[in-house]
Amino acid sequence: MKKERRKNLTQLAAWTWSWVATLAIATFGPKFIWDDHILLTVLAVTVNFTNGILMIIANRKFFNNLDELERKIHLESLALTLGLAVVVGLTYSLLDVTDLITFDAEISNLVMFIGLAYGIILTVNTRRYS
């Protein structure tokens, strides 16, 4: 079980980091590397998207290898994170639309919030069962 877990975790980490790397290339490449060459940009976005799909598959494999308690912990954390992401995301967007905030609501802020929220909730949930 441990060996399989380590293998799945390594694969997930590899796909996640390569997704981040291809996202950075697709974001900054057109401006700083290939001077807005349309074909190269399409290629970079396609590679990033495919990489993202493979990362999701690796995550599913990792999740399915967890035992029943770990799955319960992750499921509860995911449910709370999803709820928070919808509520906070829409409130954040509403603040922007109604001009209650002076800056534009950026999707990257929401992604960071989701990551932080999931990390904190997962830690709290894990401690509850230890």
């Binding site: 079980m1 035992d67 029943e68 308690l69 770990e70 319960k72 894990t126 509850r128 069962y129 230890s130």
Partner: peptide
């Protein structure tokens, strides 16, 4: 190892914090 779960799960079952499947 014998049961095929994590050590944390055994600990949680022993403490009555989690009911096994």
């Amino acid at each position: 190892e014998y049961i095929g779960v994590s050590r944390q799960t055994i600990n949680a079952i022993e403490k009555g914090k989690f009911d096994p499947s």
